[in-house]
């Protein structure tokens, strides 16, 4: 009620000003109220006119995503040259970095393996030979999974040998429970035996890395 009394309406104004000035004040107030009402009606029509009720249809869609295991070799060096040993007849060496991404299921796992798909030279031909056991490697730590470690592994032309074992429920990037980096990596230290028996020359082998995940 107090708010009604304080409200400046034509009725309230007439009561407060008395009968002598009622007519002139009414005109003034009515004209100003007319202008204010026009502005309010144009700017905020929903305050003045009741909303018209709309017909609505609600559709529910169930979206299912199957997040599958994933393995990706982000990068392997296209080519590397083994460094000449500083101490004669020790080993030619080179450290390479393998970058990868992986996602494994709670019941799965993954692995990075390596196989020599093209040998340096045929065994017994005078050059280095993977088939002869001349190429070995060790691994630095992997930031996802368990690397092959510091015990030398002899590379093979016939079987894939271990580089990294990836556990179940593993994933790359984003932080806990996945790895903190968006690309994982592991270093491999390649070592080619350097013996006097080798015939001088340039020899190239192809190493094929495979990542798999389930």
């Amino acid at each position: 009620m107090a708010s009604d009394a304080n409200c400046i309406t034509p009725g309230n104004a007439a009561r407060q000003l008395g009968p002598k000035r009622t007519e002139s004040v009414r005109r003034i107030i009515q004209s100003r109220f007319g202008a204010i009402c026009g502005i309010v009606c144009c700017a905020f029509p929903w305050l003045v006119f009741p909303a018209k009720s709309a017909a609505q249809t609600v559709v529910t869609q169930t979206v299912t995503i199957q997040v599958s295991p994933l393995g990706n070799l982000s990068s392997v060096p296209a080519s590397v040259t083994l460094a000449q040993p500083t101490i004669p007849f020790t080993s030619f060496t080179k450290t390479i970095t393998i970058s990868y991404q992986a996602r494994t299921t709670p019941s799965g796992g993954g692995a990075i393996t390596m196989q020599v798909t093209t040998d340096f030279s045929a065994a017994g031909s005078g050059g280095p030979s993977v088939a002869n056991g001349d190429l070995t490697y060790t691994c630095g730590a992997a930031d996802l999974g368990t690397s092959c470690g510091s015990s030398p592994i002899t590379a093979s032309t016939t079987t894939q040998t271990n580089v990294v074992q990836i556990p179940s429920s593993a994933c790359t990037g984003g932080g806990t429970p996945c790895s903190s980096t968006n690309t994982n990596s592991v270093t491999m230290n390649l070592s080619l035996a350097d013996t006097p028996a080798l015939t001088s020359g340039t020899y190239t082998a192809a190493l094929t890395f495979t990542i798999s995940s389930t």
Binding site: P77, T81, L192, G201, A206, L207
Partner: peptide, 17 residues
């Protein structure tokens, strides 16, 4: 399950020693 591969060519220059 997924399997992808990559290949690195490793070269050794066997010199006099």
């Amino acid at each position: 399950g997924q399997v992808t591969t990559g290949t690195t060519n490793v070269t050794a220059n066997i010199k006099h020693e």
